[in-house]
């Protein structure tokens, strides 16, 4: 069955992409399977300078999900270009660079440094990370700020720009439209939902950061709802993310209007989840009367 999807900058052999922050730069998973099986890989957020991230504990389990507050830990864009992208270049899969920062200028600096790198096929602007004090979600919760960031990124970028949106907003559709008007080539949704747990022994929040981002199957209906609403309001492709664990989940997202999907927390539960989904996908698509991935995209949207 034809699982391929063509999106701006991305020739995906299948619609399965491990989500940023859940896959590092692929090295650990490459010990377990051939990364060329994947449609693409959204690599861990790059910032201009090295970031250690938040104090630990950074992880807490929740019903059908988890909270994380990693805080964009990474070695900085120069190190990533020098050390990680050459490793990824050996695989036949589309690399999406997730870009983050504390200010608009940070995002532009990372983009400019990656513009000449042939391994990176597209950018994913992370204006939706809930775990940093500056930048992150702060840029993604207002249509005006999201549009301004998108406009400046598009002006700087020589690769397609996808904008990763936060669900922690009153009206995600207005932000999606603002990004489209500002020139975004595509949207990725959703980032994690802002959440919290308390430690009954200490009486304090369980995460050292206090709050964290909720992911896992618990958020799948929120992601599908966001994709469904935005797919009817914009004409650019949407990559769906949130709680995907199997091929059935993928088809739900495709029906809601996603053109591809990212798989996040499920990689922590089953390190083989992405190749498993790719293997299951043809049978699930066929079961519901689809002869390709493209045929399933947007099937559930009101006409």
């Amino acid at each position: 069955m034809d699982l391929s999807v063509k999106l701006p900058g991305l020739n995906l052999k299948n619609p399965i992409i491990p989500a940023s922050g859940c896959f590092g730069y692929g090295r650990e998973f490459a010990e377990m399977y051939d990364l060329s099986l994947l449609g693409g890989i959204a690599i861990k957020s790059a910032t201009p300078k090295e970031r250690f991230g938040n104090p630990t504990p950074r992880i807490a389990e929740t019903p059908m999900g988890m909270l994380n507050a990693i805080g964009l830990q990474n070695h900085g864009v120069d190190w990533i270009i020098e050390n990680e992208l050459p490793f990824l270049s050996q695989y036949d899969t589309e690399i999406i660079a997730n870009i983050a920062g504390a200010s608009e200028e940070d995002y532009l600096e990372v983009i400019e440094k990656m513009n000449d790198n042939p391994v990176v096929k597209a950018y994913e602007l992370n204006i939706s990370c809930p775990n940093v004090k500056h930048g992150g979600m702060g840029l993604g919760t207002s249509p005006d700020l999201a549009a301004e960031m998108t406009r400046r990124a598009k002006a700087a970028a020589r690769k397609p720009v996808y904008v990763k949106l936060s669900p922690n907003v009153t009206d995600i559709v207005s932000i999606a439209k603002a990004c489209e008007e500002a020139g975004a080539d595509g949207l990725v949704m959703i980032n994690t939902l802002l959440g919290m747990r308390m430690d009954l022994r200490t009486g304090k929040p369980l995460l050292a950061n206090g709050t964290g981002g909720l992911s896992g199957p618990a958020i799948k209906p929120v992601g599908i709802r966001c994709v469904y609403q935005c797919a009817q309001a914009v004409h650019i492709p949407i990559i769906g993310v949130g709680g995907i664990s199997n091929a059935t989940d993928v088809v739900e997202y495709l029906y809601a209007g996603a053109s591809a999907v990212e798989v996040g927390a499920a990689n922590f539960v089953d390190p083989y989840v992405c190749p498993s989904i790719i293997a299951q996908l043809p049978a699930v698509l066929e079961k519901y009367g689809n002869s390709s991935v493209r045929e399933a995209i947007g099937k559930g949207l009101r006409k």
């Binding site: 859940c22 590092g24 650990e28 992880i59 994380n68 990693i70 922590f268």
Partner: peptide
């Protein structure tokens, strides 16, 4: 979370 070095949780 992952136990294999990918998520930077620990």
């Amino acid at each position: 979370a992952c136990g294999m070095g990918a998520c930077m949780g620990c």
